[in-house]
Write a protein that binds this DNA or RNA. Structure first.
Lengths: 202, 202
DNA sequence: GAAAATATTGAACACTTGTACAATAAAATT
DNA sequence: AATTTTATTGTACAAGTGTTCAATATTTTC
């Protein structure tokens, strides 16, 4: 069985209409009615395929997220978890966000529902999980791996939030430099701990 | 000049009606029309005070956020940035979220706009800023402090997101234990770096 | 307490939303 | 090419949205 051409045509028409409208107004201002008018689709037909305008937009986010996922298929030698690998992984994310800046500006908009944030979060989180799960140092601690991964994931997204609030002015190379610098100090306690160690040894 | 009693009465009435409705249905399902019916307020009057239902809900979030802020007024000896202070600071946040779990369940709901997330983020961020700005180790590096603070802030919220997805089953004491454990390994690179250091010294 | 100021009301408007259903059109199947 | 299947349409409906305006009610000010 093949997919009904009418369905393909209807959905494509609505998606294209959404892209067109996004050039003139914010996502939250686009109504189902005007989307259907522009797409030449009966409004009743809309509800046979989508729940709301976000449902249509979600398609594009899935395309974008798949592009990000695909960039992680590249065979990087990941036997050891080190700063070069993390750097290579995270710069991909920054590059990706910059590439689709127009979309991420929508996704991080304060009027937009959290669902897009979570979709992005879950995607980045899956990469983070792949990188972390086989590390021995975690098993030594009484750490719930899920909390650790969410901690690390959201930290990275925290940088992107700051980037967003800044209007994406910083280049993604510079952003990557910032991340490396932040990771190099490891945690706010590093200096203090070092002092402690020195003190203990003296 | 004093505040008009009619305004006070109207807004209070709408706010109370919202609380009542929240016990029966999710925030996103509450319409302006039914809110006004329950509050005995003319729908036209609603628009003189609020833009939408979220605008009414925002009031409660501000009350909650102020409660969190107030808990940071407590005089804690913060001359040195160390793990005990961070522990004391962050356990407050977890305790706070648990205390207002009913609200944070709404705030982190995927259907709800990002605005609440940002309001919470900005609040936690301001605490983080106070803790970090005077640290010398930052000035040594070429780190944009804003990126570092947003990184740290969102990392903490990442734990809360995980908590939320889990249904707040974990106790906030246990959650705090997790945070301490995560912070103790500093970063995923710590073990690796240690190895490097050992290697260099041998 | 009277006058001035202003918040609230009710009614109306064009518009959107979500749903239902029979009629129609277009695709897939044979 | 004829038949079956199903997606789309047009229409209708009750409810919500956002705005306007004159009439009314309430509060503040003097």
């Amino acid at each position: 069985m093949k997919k009904d051409l009418r369905i393909v045509k209807t959905q494509a028409s609505l998606r294209h209409a959404l892209l067109a409208l996004l050039k003139t107004k914010p996502l939250e201002a686009i109504t189902i009615a005007e989307l259907c008018r522009l797409a030449n689709i009966n409004r009743g037909t809309f509800y046979l395929h989508y729940k709301d305008v976000h449902d249509v937009f979600k398609h594009y986010l899935e395309v974008i997220v798949n592009d990000l996922k695909q960039s992680y298929e590249e065979p990087i030698f990941k036997t050891n978890y080190n700063i070069e690998n993390i750097q290579a992984d995270m710069i991909k994310i920054f590059h990706h966000v910059k590439k689709y800046q127009d979309f991420y500006q929508i996704i991080f908009d304060e009027r937009i529902p959290m669902m897009y944030y979570y979709l992005f979060f879950d995607t980045v989180r899956s990469f983070m999980k792949d990188s972390l799960t086989n590390e021995i140092f975690i098993k030594e601690q009484a750490i719930d791996i899920d909390y650790l991964i969410s901690y690390q994931t959201n930290a990275i997204i925290g940088i992107i939030i700051e980037w967003h609030k800044e209007g994406y002015k910083t280049s993604f190379q510079e952003l990557n430099q910032q991340l490396i610098a932040i990771l190099s100090i490891h945690s706010p306690f590093r200096e203090r701990m070092k002092e402690d160690e020195i003190w203990k040894k003296s």
